[in-house]
Design a protein around this nucleic acid. Sequence first.
DNA 1: AACAAGTTTGGGAGCGCTCCCACAATATTT
DNA 2: AAATATTGTGGGAGCGCTCCCAAACTTGTT
Lengths: 344, 344
Amino acid sequence: MGTDFDNGITDLNLEDIARLSGVSRSTVSRVVNHHPNVSEITRRKVLEIIERYNFKPHPAARALASQRANIIGILIPHIVSDLFTDPFFSILLQGITTAANSVNYSPILWLTSANVDESAFYDQVFNDRLADGMIVASATVNASFIKRLDQRGKPYIIIGRPFTAYEQSSYVDSENEQGARMMVEHLIKQGRRRIGMITGRSGLTSSHDRLQGYISALQHADIPIDMRLITPAGDYSDASGYTGMKLLLHHRIDAVFAANDVMAASAMRAIKEAGLRIPEDIAIGGFDDMGISRTTEPQLTTVQQPITQLGDYAVRGLIDLLEGRVEPPYQQMLPVKLIVRQST
Amino acid sequence: MGTDFDNGITDLNLEDIARLSGVSRSTVSRVVNHHPNVSEITRRKVLEIIERYNFKPHPAARALASQRANIIGILIPHIVSDLFTDPFFSILLQGITTAANSVNYSPILWLTSANVDESAFYDQVFNDRLADGMIVASATVNASFIKRLDQRGKPYIIIGRPFTAYEQSSYVDSENEQGARMMVEHLIKQGRRRIGMITGRSGLTSSHDRLQGYISALQHADIPIDMRLITPAGDYSDASGYTGMKLLLHHRIDAVFAANDVMAASAMRAIKEAGLRIPEDIAIGGFDDMGISRTTEPQLTTVQQPITQLGDYAVRGLIDLLEGRVEPPYQQMLPVKLIVRQST
DNA sequence: AACAAGTTTGGGAGCGCTCCCACAATATTT
DNA sequence: AAATATTGTGGGAGCGCTCCCAAACTTGTT
């Protein structure tokens, strides 16, 4: 069969390795798959040959025979612009791919694109036969989406608790509500009373939950909710943070909680432009704890969300489902942490 | 074999479809693969069954038999932080996946990660047997990297011309030098003479070429190069644009060219903070034409780089290599375009 | 009508694995 | 020492395709 280059890849197969090490194809297979019933001597002998020739089993053959491709699909059905302004997805992607690689799975990627027919795209995704299971990295999933997911018959995990049918579906999410409450309680403890909120994109449970946390913290402190202090049109983008803050500045607030760091940073710009000091005149808190929160002036108090771990748990959960170790729904809420810096 | 749900996926195989439509396995295979030698009547009959049962061929079986998996690897060996601050990679990723999907290829993703052993990661990537070819989305490739790429024996395309061995390797890149020259010539035409430059990350041909374009435009206009007007430590990041601009402000410049939009935007902040007007006191130009260039105040004059098309060409080129339609090296330089807005 | 050339179709072999079953070798018990 | 349990090994069948070759059917030509 194949020839070997020094250190290059070879196209030997199991049979070749078997012949070279004087055992049968089955035994080599057992060695490769860490099957227990192989004598130590044989194992070593075979491993030596495998290493010498840098043999790797052919993934397609393996997938065909075992009906498992060791491939997970990553679906990011997000509108393009979000992907660019919010590093959340990049970090998440990184977490997912790293976790997948560490357990010998390959991630295949599906991204929606502006100039491609959406329904054709989803047909493609849902008819895919390559991936054993999939991770949906968006919380904008509705009931019909989940239905298609279920109907597909393969395991899946959603990153971000969906609004609908969340009792039955598998997801991994951060404790958004609790994080928001911690932040607002912290602001209250600093003596702030007129606390505004710049909300996230509507239609996402993360936005909903963070708003909920804000409300519940105020209620617990017996501070009445003033609807004018809650911006209606935030969407996690830089621009919406800036304009949201401009609006809030009309209501002489003494603190503001932005639903993510990106908006907090642009809100800080608006505050400074208005000639106010942070945190003396207005304290500000964000959410996510991404790189940006350490580069603002002053550094931003925020809620740390374990984005990488979100990917990690999603991958591990998916594989547990795939290998039948757990039954769906697989649901995980990951803890968040208040990071106090100079902006509050 | 399998049962069919309405609209769901089925696990029928070629043989089943053959039986259901009264032909042989081979004929169904020919229909699926658009082989010409099938009579129109047979083709229609088979297609009807295929559609009724929503049959899709099993990718692993196909890959095993044909020795082509229809999978391309995307390698982004970039340091983490770049991925987040610069939307370039997100857009590129989007372009690549969209192009791949449109020709029925699945993209698998490799991202480096901070807390993972780098050499183990590369071993994994270079030993991968799944992908038919790969796209390397980073210009920080050195000679030994290209050597491994070549030694792997599978087609590859680098996004961004590499410094070393670029005569032999396949790449797709934008006309960075020409774009930079166009920008600086434009500034000169506007009457600017003391033009500063905020450079990109060193070690990338894109930074090198944009700087080259800046220099050549000045030379053609007989404006002497003043090294003090070239920031040494730019790296395409928001922070480096800001600090770079602060430095340039000591040299009473009347224009500045930033090697990307991200840095241009933060440089604009620095200019405003210094109490200067854009473009009256200082004109500023960027590079990339990403979303950000339209949200700055004033809107940013920039060089439009066809990022999505970069991905597109890379995919098409790779597949041409894969299918033997062209011989390596495949090299494409894509045109750029000056977009004049209010900042100059 | 007979033949050549082209078109359409079917079946076999094979891609490189996994997984099962049968058998061989060894260890444990009586 | 023989019988039994345990561990280790080999080979066959099969996963669902592609691709080649041969057979069957068309069509065109003399």
